[in-house]
Amino acid sequence: MFTGIIETLGVITNIDKDKENLHLTIKSTIAPSLKINQSVAHNGICLSVVSIENDEYIVTAIKETIAKTAIGDWQVEDEVNLERAMALGDRLDGHIVQGHVDQVGVCTNITFEKGSTVFTFSYLPTKNNITIEKGSITINGVSLTVVESKKNEFSVAIIPFTLAHTTFKHVKMNTRVNLEFDVIGKYVARLTKPELF
Rank of each mutant, 00 (worst) to 15 (best):
K127F: 08
T108E: 13
V40G: 07
I12E: 05
S51T: 10
I15W: 12
L34S: 11
R84D: 02
L124R: 14
I159N: 03
L22E: 07
S28Y: 12
A67Y: 11
G105F: 03
V11K: 15
V59R: 10
H170P: 03
F121R: 07
A31W: 14
K127E: 03
L9H: 09
L9K: 13
G44T: 07
S149W: 11
I184N: 06
D16G: 00
I52P: 11
E180G: 04
R190W: 02
D73W: 07
F197I: 01
L22P: 02
T8L: 08
Q38W: 10
D93L: 10
H165Y: 14
A67T: 12
P32K: 15
A41N: 06
V50A: 10
K127Y: 10
H23L: 13
L82G: 04
R190L: 07
N129K: 14
S143I: 06
K68P: 01
D93N: 14
N54W: 13
I12L: 11
G94R: 12
D18A: 10
K150V: 00
K193G: 00
K114C: 01
F197A: 03
E20I: 09
N152E: 11
T120Y: 01
S149P: 09
E79G: 02
N21E: 11
V49Y: 12
T117Q: 01
N14G: 02
T131M: 06
S39C: 10
L163A: 01
W74K: 14
